[in-house]
Design a protein around this nucleic acid. Structure first.
Lengths: 242, 242
DNA sequence: GGCCAGCCTTGACCCACGTCAAGTTCCGGG
DNA sequence: CCCGGAACTTGACGTGGGTCAAGGCTGGCC
């Protein structure tokens, strides 16, 4: 169609760029990427808007283009357990493609975000024709399994201080000292660590008293990364039998 | 080869029966099943023998033919967190097929068991040629993801009593009263529920005092399933806002 | 500038659960 | 039949961390 050729070209170019960058599709042929770009739906989410709820029938899977999406469950008691926060370039809900039941969790935008919706039917059809794409899906789900397994030991084998230290080490920029800018409120971080804001506050306080970090508003300054890493290692091993 | 034709026929027949019964392969053509049976390796495990350890390079994935296999992680402190106990007909470690890294957990036989080892290379090759098999693998991994997500709320959103009630409901035979025969020792059940044997003992005791169950050796008799279900529901909802 | 509303912090309190320790019961072997 | 050990039970105790409640702090808004 000669109508709006530039617009759709631009759209396709931007999409294909995003697709090429994400782990799920990188390495596919330009032709396949174009096919995928053809049936993708772009969806914008406001902060705190839900992408789907637990039990919703599945539309397909998702790829974060910008922003961040919090995938979580809520208990009968109304408490929210964060499973993972997916950021730009990451894909999620692949599991929903292969299973007839609805989504097993909820997804909500942490901030204003853009996600690419990959509809179920056409991607399944393409997977059927492209074995290497099937492999990638398997690989991606296997990665998610590992993340969940990691969460399991986080939740069962470590206390809050250890989880926080681990989070700090993962998020601190390189170099002995560095600043971490909190994306959301501290309550959100507490939820991500599976604790309450009060306990997080106390734990941060304890690290501050040991001069390992300073906290000011949404900025956490790491003063002594090696000391933090060694404290983390000590915590992980402290109950060891001699 | 004319040698031992009956033996290998018998082996193949038994294998194909097992394959046909398991969720992963049921519905595949007899021809494909024969191919799979051709490269499967049968492995017997003594009680407490390890099938693989965390970090081992992956041989392939597994199908339990008889017995039970405990997949778990161990923390730096030496504590063991059970991820799942797989029993006859269930498959696991599919994730290892698609990812170049080693196994992310350990697997050990709870009792004397027989597992079918499905080697990596030939099954991957077959998946490449049989899109519906790829779908099944995706479905199976999606199921494992759901199990893990379920474990997550078990561990974070419920106390031990609630987890035990949930376990009882899942394992009790139909009808208002029924007997559950414990497969392993009570310490094993405690580990499966993510607690210590002492706490399990106390919790069972409390339920006994309420005349909901009786415990005698390895037999748990459920006297009042509806009451247990209603107690479970009450526990799940007790912190609800009105 | 003053005010209100969220956040964050701190203290007090409580409870579930893990751990240690001291019995019991139940086997399997000599 | 007795003994030793494993599994189980029960009690006592400590503690991490969740919850409630009461301030400080900050920032938007009139």
């Amino acid at each position: 169609m000669p109508l709006t050729p530039r617009t759709s070209d631009l759209k396709a170019t931007g999409l294909i760029g995003t697709l090429r960058c994400c782990q799920l599709f990188s390495g596919l042929s330009a032709e396949d990427l174009a096919v995928i770009a053809g049936f993708i739906v772009v969806q914008k989410l406001a902060k705190d808007e839900y992408l789907f709820h637990e039990g919703d029938p599945s539309r397909g899977c998702y790829l974060v283009q910008s922003g961040a999406v919090n995938v979580h469950r809520v208990s009968a008691a109304g408490k929210e357990q964060v499973i993972h926060v997916f950021r730009s370039g990451e894909s999620f809900a692949e599991a929903a493609l292969a299973s007839p039941t609805g989504y097993p969790a909820n997804a909500r935008a942490v901030e204003a975000s853009t996600v690419l919706v990959i509809p179920k039917a056409p991607i399944l059809e393409l997977i059927g024709r492209r074995p290497d794409l099937a492999m990638r899906m398997l690989g991606s789900m296997s990665g998610h399994l590992r993340v969940l397994v990691g969460m399991l030991d986080d939740l069962t084998l470590k206390d809050v201080e250890t989880r926080l230290l681990n989070w700090l080490v993962k998020h601190a920029p390189a170099g002995p000292t560095g600043k971490i800018h909190l994306a959301g409120t501290k309550r959100v971080l507490a939820a991500e660590l599976g604790t309450s804001s009060e306990t997080l506050s106390r734990t941060l306080g304890r690290l501050r008293d040991q001069h390992l970090i300073t906290v000011s508003g949404k900025i956490i300054t790491v003063h002594n990364l090696p000391a933090i890493q060694s404290l983390l290692r000590r915590n992980l091993g402290e109950h060891e039998n001699p």
